[in-house]
Design a binder for these strands. Sequence first.
RNA 1: CGGGGAGUGGCGCAGCCUGGUUAGCGCGCCUGCCUUGGGAGCAGGAGGUCGUCGGUUCAAAUCCGAUCUCCCCGACCA
Length: 484
Amino acid sequence: MAKDERFVKQITAKSEDFSRWYLEIIRKAEMADYAPMKGIMVIRPYGYTIWENIQRLMDRRIKETGHVNAYFPLFIPESFLKKEMEHLEGFAPQVAWVTQGGQEELEERLAVRPTSEAIIGSMYAKWIQSYRDLPVLINQWANIVRWEKVTRPFLRTTEFLWQEGHTAHETMEEAQEETIKVLYMYKDFVESELAIPVIEGRKSPRERFAGAMETYAIEALMSDGKALQMGTSHNLGQHFSKVFEIRFEDREQKQQYVWQTSWGVSTRLIGALVMTHGDDSGLRMPPQVAPIQVVVVPISLGSWKENVLPVALAIEKELLEAGLRVKLDAREEFTPGWKFSEWEMRGVPLRVEVGPKDIKENRAVLVRRDVQQKDFVGLAALAPQVKKTLQQIQSSLFEQALRFQRENTRSVSDYREFKEVLESKRGFIRSWWCGDEACEDKIKEETMASIRVIPLKEEAKEDPGDCVYCRKKGRELAYFARAY
RNA sequence: CGGGGAGUGGCGCAGCCUGGUUAGCGCGCCUGCCUUGGGAGCAGGAGGUCGUCGGUUCAAAUCCGAUCUCCCCGACCA
């Protein structure tokens, strides 16, 4: 059996049409389906279980760093949104409005939340009086609506699910520290749970969140060479506290405005999993977030129900007791081969096969989804071996993605080369930038590439080169890419 | 929002140009037999009114108009 041979052709090859491949995986793996309204999808159980796993692992980190969960309203009065004009103008084209309740027209329009800075800010103004009330460290899990013109399942939909943290602090330094702490929390989460390597850094002013003083993000490279923003963390400064009057009496008994942050990751991460790890046979789920970590397939031959099934049941029980998410697929109406393909499409990381031959040898067959490798394992050592293999798959997926990211990150100092790389290879391009928005705009216009992130740690290590566009002295080392 | 393409049983498609009996095909689904170590085989069967609305016509999946949705490219977008 050749390693990269496709057993069954059921989806468009990734290399043939990436976009179509992506959409077909989502439907064949039953992650999501289109709802009958433009740009809105239904997240089906298999996709939603991935989200639940993401939630569970992220929520743990959020709480470990001292935050607590709360829930704020879906509706935001227009006047609240208007208080921070930069913020309103940033979101205006994407806001859905409620103008009528029952038969009555509303006196004031209500926005369906595009994000919650405004409504949360108005509440913080009531809750915060003294430095003793600070910091406020609140997170909420919620749905968000943004009227998007171009939508794609998970990557950009009109309604989506996310988590948004909103914190308030005594000092600018403390808010900045929080912003960066969360950025690295996201990086750690995405790399260790989703097995997706990211580059963390600051956004250029052009890409900054509407109303933020500074925006930071983690960016990943999808396997078609386009970048995807995986999470953002904003230092809001005092923009919102000034307009919402979020004041406190400080240690010197003076009135001060609080310093705020906000940060979020969304169901877009599920799209990133597909585009980072998927192959021509379907999904490849990292074990940490896989809805099913191990599928047990009994080889149904002859009197398998008497001989094979009891062993399969015992294996299922043992793996369940070992704390794994296990599925025994003992359906009679499908052949083993059919089941193999089915679970490969859904990206189940590890498959355990047991058949008559294995039972004679007192063993089972382990098949890794990531590399399609088969190994015989004695039944006595099964559970520990399965656990170990899952860990290997988790790190192997990360390593594969990291290798891809490194191979597709190129340092370029010449604009001609810059354009050439984008045309032929895409990926991240590391270049110096003078800091002038005009250069950034020109580059975007001419190459469709934007500044994804200005790395936090790398700048100091190198002598500045010239701006890749205007040749003036470079001020920032930036990662450029075409992005989703 | 601009340009292009597409909506026909669950999925993928043919039919439309050149209107005319019961709208086909493959996969899937159901029943039975037989099979099962990489999506088995045979036989029988169910399921669509052609995205939606309107118009032309004796007659519309087919022609005309509007509208909704999806896909691709671009503009826009934390």
